[in-house]
Simulated scan of single mutants.
Amino acid sequence: MYTLQIEHGIKDFDLWKAAFDRDPADRAGSGVTAHRISRPVDDPRYVVVELDFGQPGQAEAFLAKLHATVWNSPDVAPALMGAPKTRILESAL
């Protein structure tokens, strides 16, 4: 399993979650098999998103799609603050 981990600051969680739920990048159609959203207990204006994929190429393609169609558009990502920090992880277990 491969996980695209995304961390970024947000203006407002409810606004961010509504945009996430609209799914402008088509997670299921892009190979996402599961996702998790976490928030630091000491920072309500930050999120960590983990998106699981079966193949590393799917994670890489989805990350490229996020850069091209989501993160560069304030209309699509209205709650995003700053540039997201990303990495693709491979499950070690």
Rank of each mutant, 00 (worst) to 15 (best):
M1Y: 04
M1E: 08
Y2H: 02
T3W: 06
T3Q: 08
T3S: 07
Q5H: 11
Q5D: 04
Q5K: 11
Q5R: 13
I6L: 10
H8F: 03
G9M: 04
I10P: 00
K11M: 07
K11T: 12
K11V: 07
D12H: 07
D12R: 05
F13D: 00
F13A: 03
D14H: 09
L15S: 13
L15A: 11
W16C: 04
K17R: 13
A19K: 12
A19F: 00
F20N: 00
R22P: 08
D23C: 10
D26N: 15
R27S: 01
R27E: 02
R27P: 02
R27Y: 00
A28G: 05
A28W: 13
G29C: 08
G29D: 05
G31H: 09
G31V: 10
V32S: 04
V32E: 05
V32F: 05
T33Q: 08
T33A: 03
A34H: 11
A34Y: 06
H35V: 01
H35D: 08
R36Y: 15
I37A: 01
S38R: 14
S38L: 15
R39G: 03
R39H: 09
P40F: 03
P40L: 07
V41L: 15
P44A: 13
P44E: 12
R45E: 12
R45H: 15
R45G: 07
V47H: 05
L51F: 10
F53P: 09
F53K: 07
F53W: 10
Q55G: 00
P56A: 05
G57F: 04
G57R: 13
A59E: 04
E60F: 02
A61Y: 01
F62Y: 15
F62H: 14
L63P: 03
A64D: 10
A64S: 12
K65D: 04
K65H: 09
L66P: 02
L66N: 07
L66I: 04
L66A: 04
H67T: 06
A68L: 02
A68N: 10
T69C: 01
V70M: 05
W71K: 06
W71N: 09
S73L: 07
P74H: 13
D75W: 01
V76P: 13
V76A: 14
A77P: 12
A77V: 11
A79F: 10
M81P: 02
G82R: 02
G82K: 07
G82L: 03
G82D: 01
G82P: 06
A83Y: 06
A83P: 08
P84C: 09
K85Q: 12
K85Y: 00
K85M: 08
T86F: 03
R87P: 00
L89A: 08
L89H: 06
E90V: 06
E90N: 01
S91V: 03
L93S: 11
L93Q: 10
